[in-house]
Simulated assay, not measured.
Amino acid sequence: MTTGAARAIGLGASAIAACGVAATAGGLARSRLRRPTGEPGELTEVDGLTLHSLVHRAGGPTVVFENGLCCPCTTWSWVLDGIADRYSYVAYDRPGNGWSGDDGKRRSAREINELAAELVAHYDLPAPYVLVGHSIGGLLGMSFAAAMSHDVAGLVLVDSSHPEQLVRSSAQRDSMPMVDHAMGALFWRTLLGRKPSAPAVSFLDDLPPHQAARTKSAMERPSPWRAALREVRTFYAWSDELRTATLPSSLPVAVVTAGQTDVGDSKHRELQSELAALSEVGSHVVVPGADHDGIVMRQDDATHVIDAIEWTIAQSMAQPQRTRGV
């Protein structure tokens, strides 16, 4: 709207100034929502989106990582360093997270799985695949393993969400409105150009220093919080998809549980044990003192995730190849 047009419909000087401020603010907001530059990994176009991945080729099974809520793929840094000499891997940013672009769409778990499958195909990473999912990423790992079981060698669930946790755990159910509010507040805070509050990103301090700094920088933008808000509101739909999914009974499943998560939720250990029981070849390790984020992002705790990946691959290699796409 031009100044002349504003005056023609009766806007005064203060209103005209306010329009200019709003337009400037809108432009800044749009710029903050753009995909950031300076990505540490590789970029590729998938389904019309620019997706960012950390990719490593070393032969053997390919380990595919699904991040927790709002977390960039760099949050796996300790784990990636621990397996790089033995296995290929891809850790990627879902739409809106880290250094990936965003189109604002809500996607089913199956649609997210298809993005991941296109990435491993694009980078020519060999099957079989071991899915590793943290928190809400565990739901996506289970969905991938169920839908593409012929190419999947194993599943590692790291303090994972459970498809029925909002039905059976009052602590989890009661916390959802607070999580929704927190993600929304962080979105608006960063959209207005303010940094996230220190507690909101303090868990990143346990990453290797160079990764902690770049990951915090990525999370100073509004897109990860908008994406997190979208995923929180899609949780029920993803859970419903998992209720009808079936994993092969012989698929190795390793569950790594953060001991501190049990403190605030008496149902957590029970639900985690059920995840390990999804397979006849299951393992469940509880890490005392580990919290929900630190189990991935603290170096000492991350060794348990590395051990779970090793166990899963060893169990898979000991099985006949009938269940694997090789």
Rank of each mutant, 00 (worst) to 15 (best):
T2S: 15
T3R: 12
A5T: 12
A8V: 02
L11K: 02
A13R: 06
I16M: 07
A17R: 11
A17F: 04
A18I: 06
A18D: 13
V21L: 15
A23K: 05
R32F: 11
R35F: 11
R35H: 13
T37F: 06
E39N: 15
P40Q: 08
T44V: 10
E45N: 08
V46Q: 01
L54T: 12
P61S: 13
N67Q: 06
P72L: 03
P72W: 11
C73Y: 06
D81C: 01
Y87M: 07
Y87T: 06
A91I: 00
Y92A: 04
D93L: 06
R94C: 03
W99N: 12
G101D: 14
G101N: 07
D103S: 06
K105E: 12
R106E: 09
E111D: 14
N113M: 06
A116T: 05
H122L: 08
Y123I: 10
D124V: 14
P126Q: 12
A127W: 00
S135I: 00
G138S: 03
S143K: 01
F144E: 05
F144K: 00
A145N: 09
A146S: 14
D151F: 10
V152K: 11
L155K: 00
E164P: 03
Q165N: 08
L166P: 00
L166R: 12
R168G: 02
A171G: 02
A171E: 08
Q172G: 06
R173W: 04
S175H: 08
H181K: 14
T190E: 04
L191Q: 02
L191C: 01
G193R: 06
P199D: 09
A200H: 05
V201P: 07
S202H: 02
S202G: 01
L204I: 13
D205C: 08
D205P: 02
Q211A: 13
T215Y: 08
M219W: 00
E220G: 12
P224M: 04
R226L: 15
F235V: 09
L242V: 11
A245I: 00
L247V: 05
P248K: 13
P248Y: 10
G259H: 01
D262H: 12
D265W: 13
D265Y: 08
S266M: 14
V281M: 02
V287G: 04
G289T: 01
A290D: 04
A290R: 07
H292Y: 03
D293K: 10
I295A: 15
M297G: 03
M297I: 02
D300W: 04
A302Y: 03
I306Q: 03
I306M: 03
E310W: 01
W311K: 06
T312Q: 04
Q315G: 05
Q321F: 02
